[in-house]
Nucleic acid binder design. Structure first.
Lengths: 201, 201, 201, 201
DNA sequence: CATGAATGAGAATTCATTCAT
DNA sequence: AATGAATGAATTCTCATTCAT
């Protein structure tokens, strides 16, 4: 009984948090990060303002949850690719495609993902920023590629910055212009560019 | 007389606006974007708070001015390079170096430059974002390079996004970690990478 | 049956109210008067928050009950002494000792007892404050003492104020400094002072 | 000019703070410490709520000011008596009279004076509570009196507690009942009692 | 019947903007 | 013409009380 009740409670909590999550996304989309007030979130979620505080200790915790939830599927997919047994260049391609796929969907989430800038103080300083994690993922793939001679010898740290930055910019661009480019084509384009550079021939 | 008075007024206005500009930069540096209150700006500038409204219609206008002014020298330098009579790859190199030089100096200005995100609503949507201008500059150089066979045939629009994003990320990284990498080395490294890509050989 | 049920209900009510009483004391001790929220009381008592309202009309009523219950044993003991068949000075001594004994135990209860200030609006204005009852008790003893020539002729009303105030202060002092002075010594000291005053000789 | 302006500003500030002080007293009188909201103070003072924060950093600072201002004249008068060149018993009498005079005026201020309890966190912990200062003052007088054989040998620390507590109670009583007893008579009565105690003869 | 979820009413605090001097 | 004082409108967060299950 107690167990059942507890499970039910967890379910309810979970459902509420998801509802709030969606409300936050909605408000973020409509009013931007600065316009994200607890009042608006409550209104959007269709609950009293005080109720938000039943599910999150404070605004920051709420944002942390949203951030985590938004990022989760991307991170998971990327980790899967990382562990798979394919050549480094295929891994890189897979990761890029994952990003383009997921990030292209929600402008808001993308901003949360990349511009940890605007969300300064959002994350517990101990934990890795999503950006940092992403950078490390690429870095690892690059190193693997260099070791296996799939890539030439490059400064993996900096190169991962270059790649991440490029992807970020492409996604931002799409969102800014409200366009959606075909994921595959995008992936190939980027892979092609990073493979061959600008060099003639 | 009327003319003279008008000119004097313009001078005064101009001087005041510059003073305010510096105050804003100072406050931004010290307290961040969230800590940028009109009170602090006025105090830093050494003028009355109400006076700020003599020179700018409101906070947003003030920020627009600061943004424009911060970007100005970079834009100017880049324009010079663009018009100079050197091969496209040299132009690209020159532009990159300019960015690394200027953007590396002030974190604050950099953020204003790139993260129009955090300053959403800052810019009149009609006018070109600095980012857009920068992208167009690169795009032009790329086109020129393709035409003159200095670069292989690439999608110049997208490639300029790639390049811009990469540079942006590098600068952000430096700032986030409070490091400063040698401009020349950085430029060469990036140029090298963009030229040859990851391809073995 | 109806009678039985009613009696059972009364029992249950009584037990619950005592449980809540203890919870309140616990919360008061741990979080102070400002930290006394219905949530905490419910949690501490191990009942649902709404249940509190089954046993008390509202927070104020609950506090009234706590107050009364906290005072009860002191009052009872004092009444016993009052009725006993000993000289007035012995009675006074006995009352003082009772106070020192009981009040010294729980800071929280003491505050409820004396500082009706902080709990303004707590007590129905009609009913006698505990303080008033105490004052009257002393006053009675003093009168008795004066009548029986154990004490000199004094203004009993005012003198009881003096005595009560002194005791109160002594107890407060102990609590404020987290000290505990021996009850006996304390009693004797006060009795001594009030008996002989400051007069030399 | 600057000096003049500064002086004017100080005057204005001072006047405003006094106005706010009176508003606070008014609100305290009417609604008690719990009912003391910034809203009410602002309304009572006839200024906007935000203005309060121009004159006090926060509610606590405001209360500190009120406390200090309320206490100031009493403290000053007492210090004068302490330094004067009269026998200890006269000093004690003078101090008591001062208290009765000043404290009898405003219930609210009296509570601030004595019940530092309810105002926990109000005072910077470093500084002496008014109560502590008062206690020390009496203690000093008692010691002086004992040294000069004006008083018999008593435990000055505890005796000062007794005396202070007694006075406090008397004042509280008056206020609770909205009475005002003649200061002189009150003083004499208390002094008489403290001198001779309850002892017959 | 017991209860936890929900919330309205309010609390302190902040800040861009206006205006009287 | 310059300015500091004033403030309305928000913002985050809290809690006694109610009500549907």
């Amino acid at each position: 009984m107690t167990k059942l009740e507890q499970r039910r409670k967890e379910m309810v909590t979970s459902v509420m948090r998801e509802g709030i999550y969606e409300a936050v996304v909605e408000v973020l989309t409509e009013h931007g990060l600065d316009g994200l007030t607890m009042d608006r979130v409550a209104a959007q979620a269709g609950v009293g303002k005080a109720s938000l505080y039943k599910y999150f200790a404070n605004k920051q915790e709420m944002l942390r949850f949203v951030h985590a939830k938004a990022i989760e599927p991307v991170t998971a997919a990327v980790q899967t690719h990382l562990k798979s047994d394919i050549p480094a260049d295929q891994k890189l391609r897979a990761i890029l495609r994952t990003w383009f796929e997921h990030l292209g969907e929600h402008q808001v989430l993308f901003n949360l993902f990349c511009n940890d800038f605007g969300v300064e103080g959002l994350l517990k300083s101990e934990e890795l920023t999503e950006q940092e994690r992403a950078l490390q993922d690429i870095s690892n793939v690059l190193e693997e590629g260099v070791r296996s001679s799939v890539f030439r010898k490059v400064d993996t740290a900096r190169t991962s910055l270059l790649i991440f930055g490029a992807v970020r910019q492409l996604v931002e661009q799409q969102l800014a212009n409200d366009e959606t480019w075909p994921t595959d084509e995008l992936t190939e384009h980027v892979m092609d560019f990073f493979s061959r550079g600008l060099q003639v021939r």
